[in-house]
Design a protein around this nucleic acid. Structure first.
Lengths: 251, 251
DNA sequence: CGACTGACTTGACATAGATCAAGGTCTATT
DNA sequence: AATAGACCTTGATCTATGTCAAGTCAGTCG
């Protein structure tokens, strides 16, 4: 088997049970016994919107993965400035094996169902099961790439490009989670307040509001509710993100 | 042995040979044979200042680690806007096992000596040697944390805080690489042009210039040469970064 | 039913940092 | 010692986004 093998989310979905940690962390290649260990270990917990899951500095008793809802990973400075550093959607992993205390705040943005494992036995399992460690490495490297792309957005994009990028990414992730559908969902719920978007994009909530309504006025998106979006022109939205590979040069 | 065991850089230095990949990726706990395999595989290559090491999208034949000098990991938009997403110093790993093409540009900022391994056999080794994979996971998670902290800087800090943070971080890293010394070097070379700093911080080079000279005028640092810095007041510099834990509240 | 609350919008104004434009300093080259 | 090129500084101005301050609107509670 190849180190770099990349299991598509869908193929994992078919082979694994209902808990995301199975297909994200253990996946199709694992032995039956290992699956059974994880099955026995897991427990679920539900958090209400706005409820903290863990604070930076707290001891981490659990690691786990999101089953339903949206959670945010963020950092706050003493004077209150806040920056989201990750958006946790269903199937994303929460917690860092090998570290006893949390480095970032995790909060439920909408109602969140978390599938949890006690950290210590999970680490032991990680130590014993080669595939699990490999899967964790892949996940960490994927998240690292995502974080670095977000750095380009934070450092160099304009407010309009930031908003467009966020909407586009949420649409993509939404499509991933849906059964049929293309690669980008057309109509979906952002599941984030304007303030949460601002914290994610390094903007103020007023700027977010103005830019979202700007995209609406320019016919790029429709707003069905405050957070319910329909993309009117996907190509145009992609152009607005600033990282359209060939929007400038018509072939 | 514990999954979360964290080998300090120094202890590894003592036990390993001259190639950073040994103490970063294989480390003190590895068997002799594994070290020998890496020894046989490795080769060195030297890059001049400004020379590209690999471009985003290129096939990655090698992975490796920096022995000497500074390299930058960056992304560029079509219109030329550029964002550095990582600063690679001696002992840092370059390349991503399990991916055949590079996701980011890597350029030598100063003269760089790179210790290289062919990617394919390295991946095979990674597959066979548990400690190596564990070390890679730790490195990836550390880099992820660093990337996320940089996101706070890019999204929420002022220009002055950004510059102060960069100087502080370079001073820390410098101290790490030196034999004796405290945790923060006092006098050192930034090894970056104003433009490279700007690309790292999401600023323009003019703003970088003004802020660096501002810190000098305010007695926080001295400039011995254009890139040669002496920190006059470490506590003050830390305060200027914005993430001083208790600069605001005297106990 | 009114009025309260939280999320959002909109306007007027302020400002940090970008942009544009010179000019300066250092090093290498001839 | 003149010339050139890379790098850096400094000033004047512009502008995108932040800040402050009123609203609006939908849902919820008394």
């Amino acid at each position: 088997m190849n180190v770099g093998a990349n299991f598509s989310k869908n193929s994992n979905k078919e082979k694994c049970g209902d808990c995301p940690i199975q297909h994200r962390a253990v996946c199709a290649y694992c032995e039956k016994t290992e699956l059974l260990i994880l099955e026995a270990m897991k427990s679920y917990k539900i958090y209400g919107p706005g409820e903290p899951i863990i604070w930076a500095g707290d001891e981490m008793r659990y690691v786990g993965s999101i089953v339903q809802g949206v959670a945010s990973l963020s950092q706050t400075m003493e004077d209150g400035r806040k920056q989201m550093v990750g958006l946790l959607l269903p199937s994303d992993f929460v917690g860092r094996p090998g570290r006893s205390h949390a480095a970032f705040d995790v909060e439920a943005t909408s109602e969140v169902t978390l599938c949890r494992f006690e950290r210590k036995p999970f680490e032991k399992l990680l130590n014993d099961v080669p595939h699990l460690r490999q899967r964790m490495l892949e996940m960490a490297l994927d998240e690292l790439d995502a974080a670095r792309e977000w750095m380009l957005l934070l450092g160099r994009k304009t407010a309009r490009e930031k908003i467009s990028s966020l909407i586009y990414i949420i649409a993509q992730r939404e499509a991933d989670l849906r059964p049929g559908g293309g690669s980008v969902a057309v109509e979906f719920d952002l599941k984030l307040t304007r303030e949460a978007m601002a914290d994610y994009l390094g903007l103020t909530l007023e700027t977010v509001s103005r830019q979202v309504n700007g995209l609406k006025k320019d016919g790029v998106i429709d707003l069905l509710g405050k957070r319910q979006v329909r993309i009117r022109d996907i190509a145009r939205l992609l152009q607005e993100t600033g990282d359209d590979a060939d929007g400038a040069m018509p072939s």
